[in-house]
Design a protein around this nucleic acid. Structure first.
Lengths: 313, 313
DNA sequence: CTGAAAGCGCTTACAG
DNA sequence: CTGAAAGCGCTTACAG
């Protein structure tokens, strides 16, 4: 019998049939945020570390890992076509969410608490931002600027000075949280939001550098820069170096994320570290293990390196 | 009618049914080589760049990208379970190949010409190795050592001096080609293989560094080191720095691959560059476009940076 | 041109 | 305990 099967070229049980009966696919899908397609997943150090955590769990469980491709328009159809047991969403995104919901498959959202009905893993952006701002305030800084994360490819957006919470042009909830955290800490020290310029810059090069240049051009007297991502902060270091502005002597910079590159930049970056791989691990485990829907908040910590010091007198 | 469908919670056409009728899955699978699981794909700069090329094509075509997980044992079952239209194999591997063949799905092999029946994209390892060795010979070097790539996790393997071609302990065909290329160029200059020590080291840290230490300990008089991968070459730089051995004054090092990190090492690494992302792009296009089975060979070029110089007199 | 039926390759529940 | 049948959700070829 077996010989006959082999003669006919039978290739062993196909997962296709099994699948149909509601069986497991033994794969989970990862949906990078925004315009972050599969390619930019590889280029973003932040996403890469989270993804590595997810991958680690997949290796443990012998599951395959599907990366959902495509820019916003196509992503919807890519999700519809994805054959997976569950999804990890890089951020909240309406289109993604809707599509995932329609598939009636479990999912976990990163970086956003979407209420008690949806599983999520995130950090407290507000708290992290407070830590960053307070660190600079304690060093004696009074002239601040903020580099926010623009979420779509494009030129930086300049807000001059005086951006109220919630007025970010292109941000995710996490970005609004961080902005609120910065402004809250500054307000406690008597610094008004209307005195703090904000630039929104897309983190991949060369957009982040363009944002940093815009900031140095428009607000040359700033001594303390709060960046919402390490990638943007490192771009500030690069541009400062180009122009002969010394860090931390002339200007202090604090990043956010605690990406590996932040430890190797020159000078090494003071930043708000979060457990990136760990977040991927937790999200993947929630997906594999099922269980009750939970909202996990991971800790943030201030890591002081060499990009911050007291302002020049 | 449509309202009724919505009331019943109909979630739109499922890819599962379509699949069964032989339809496209709109996804391709990437199988990292050897013990390289999904996780180490993220950690290996070489694989990451190739993978990025693959991802780029997937983005263009709106296809999803499945990373096949698991160590050797489980990989077989992971492949059997993978729902994809085709595979890209990181290297030749019997198990992988067998499994892929059984699925009767198209595939492309990287880094190995498996004959006219199988599609492949590779570089000429022998030629690249010749270029590297000749560069050092022209600078006047006579005392060589080779760092080969061990393909499984584990301690470095030391071959003293005198390894004939084909005697590598744990290598892929590409590694044998490179060894042959090194030895061929050295032989032309009258240097006998029996005078050239070889160490096989697994590229991820800390194995690569252990290999470099073994080499410096056992062959302290060597002035020229030929490494089969940039990762291994950079580990040599790191260990040299640890020990106060100056590169290139005391010892010259040539890498292989032309990974981004090689341009940023200190000193910047002289290496044999190959179009990594391009290989991923070509492999993915072959898969998507079908067409005749081809064996593509991509060019290698010597990139001289600052890790090589004439030997000290 | 619309609508009922068969079949893709499995699994599962049921009859023998 | 073994074996034939039904059904998963589609698509495709065929009958009405």
């Amino acid at each position: 019998v077996e010989a006959a099967a082999r003669d006919l070229g039978y290739a062993g049980p196909s997962p296709k049939g099994r699948l149909l009966m509601g069986g497991k696919v033994h794969a989970i899908g990862f949906i990078p945020a925004g315009e972050m397609s599969v390619e930019s997943l590889m280029r973003s150090p932040y996403l890469r570390e989270v993804f590595t955590g997810v991958a680690q769990v997949c290796d443990e469980r012998g599951a395959n890992l599907l990366v959902v491709s495509g820019v916003t328009r196509r992503k919807d159809w890519a999700i519809a076509n994805a054959l997976v047991d569950g999804f990890i969403l890089g951020h909240v995104e309406e289109i993604g969410l809707v599509s995932v919901r329609r598939k009636q498959v479990p999912y976990v959202v990163l970086e956003h608490d979407a209420g008690p009905d949806v599983a999520s893993v995130r950090v407290d952006g507000r708290k992290g931002a407070c830590l960053a701002a307070r660190h600079l305030l304690e060093l004696g800084h009074r002239k601040f600027a903020i580099v926010s994360v623009r979420r779509r490819r494009g030129e930086p957006i300049w807000h001059g000075a005086g951006l109220a919470t919630g007025q970010l042009h292109a941000g995710y909830p996490l970005d609004h949280e961080k902005l609120a955290g910065y402004l809250e800490a500054l307000a406690e020290a008597g610094i008004n939001a209307s005195d703090v310029p904000v630039v929104e810059a897309f983190p991949p090069s060369p957009y982040a550098e363009a944002g940093a240049r815009m900031l140095f051009d428009a607000a040359p007297d700033v001594t303390a820069i709060l960046a919402m991502s390490d990638k943007n902060a490192i771009a500030v270091l690069t541009v400062a170096n180009e122009r002969g502005t010394r860090v931390p002597e002339d200007v202090s910079v604090v990043g956010f994320d605690g990406v590996a590159e932040a430890a190797r930049s020159s000078p090494p970056l003071t930043t708000i570290a979060q457990p990136l791989a760990e977040k991927g691990i937790l999200a993947a485990r929630m997906l594999f293990d099922g269980g009750p829907v939970r909202q996990i908040v991971q800790p943030v910590t201030l890591v002081v390196r060499h990009s911050t010091s007291p302002p020049r007198r």
